[in-house]
Computed example of a mutant assay.
Amino acid sequence: MNTWRSPWRLERGVALWVLLVGLACGPCAAQPDWPNDESQIKAAFLYKFAGYVDWPEGFLGSVETPFTIGVLGADPIADELVQIVQGRKIHSRSIVVSRLKAGDPLEDVAILFVGKGDAARLKPVRGTLQAQPILVVTEEPAGLALGGMINFLLVDRHVRFEVALAPVEKSGLRLSSRLLAVAQRVHAEGR
């Protein structure tokens, strides 16, 4: 018996079995729903970002004050974020996801996520936002130029992010070097 063929036959048999199971389970199992996955990943990033950011002392209030993540114009991401943060804490605080509309006050928000199509609303309030220690995260191609500090990117269908350090520093926030190390791009100068 020729032994080199046995592993090949086993691999081919496993590959065929996986293909048949995928087809039997239908198109939903074989092909994940990309936009839903993208929302889940972005929501997970938003939750994780908080662990790599230092806010100025006193900004977050007492430990009884909830940590608020505001979401403007991105309901699927807000929905996913609500699921992710349920029963969890950030900096020893409970977490609240606040769905915002343009013009809503931001005084209790620690992280502001601005969805696609809404980032242009940041431009008029960019100076005000950068004077406050609020981490602004966007998902627009020009998100950093519009006032975002972290901007989501899609690179080969993978969610990545870029960081603009100038607005982060102006706001009094400090980002961990571990967060910067995994960024797709870090812009030292303002955008």
Rank of each mutant, 00 (worst) to 15 (best):
L154H: 10
L179R: 10
F161V: 05
A188L: 08
K89M: 03
L146V: 00
L20C: 10
Q86A: 12
G51V: 03
P124N: 03
N151C: 03
R174A: 15
A183S: 12
G190W: 13
V53E: 07
I41E: 11
L100A: 03
A74K: 06
R99K: 12
A50H: 10
A188S: 10
T128G: 02
A78P: 10
P105N: 06
A30C: 13
V18L: 10
S39I: 00
S39Q: 09
M1C: 04
F49N: 06
R93Q: 08
A120C: 00
S177H: 12
S176L: 11
G73A: 07
R157D: 10
K116D: 07
D104T: 04
V63F: 07
F59A: 11
V136N: 01
A30S: 12
L154T: 09
R191P: 06
D54M: 09
F49H: 04
A166V: 01
G13Y: 08
A78L: 03
K89D: 12
L173E: 10
R185G: 03
P32S: 13
R160H: 11
G61W: 14
S6R: 14
I111D: 01
D37L: 15
G70P: 08
P7T: 04
D75P: 13
P7H: 02
R174Q: 14
A183R: 10
T3A: 07
A15T: 15
A142N: 11
P27N: 14
T128W: 04
A24H: 13
D118T: 04
G70R: 05
Q132G: 00
I150Q: 02
M1G: 05
L106H: 05
G73I: 02
N2M: 07
D33A: 11
W4T: 05
W8L: 13
Q130A: 07
S98D: 12
A119R: 02
T68A: 08
V53Y: 05
F45T: 06
N2A: 10
F45G: 14
S177M: 06
R99S: 08
T65L: 09
V114D: 00
L100N: 08
A44C: 12
V82T: 13
D108E: 13
G70A: 02
L20S: 15
T65Q: 15
A43V: 09
P133Y: 01
V155I: 11
E162L: 03
G26K: 08
N151M: 01
G87R: 05
F59K: 11
I90R: 12
P141H: 00
A142L: 08
L10E: 10
L10G: 09
R174K: 15
I41L: 14
K170N: 11
A74P: 01
W4P: 00
G70F: 04
R9E: 13
T138G: 01
E140G: 02
L19H: 06
A44H: 15
S94Y: 12
A181P: 04
D54P: 00
R99G: 03
K101E: 08
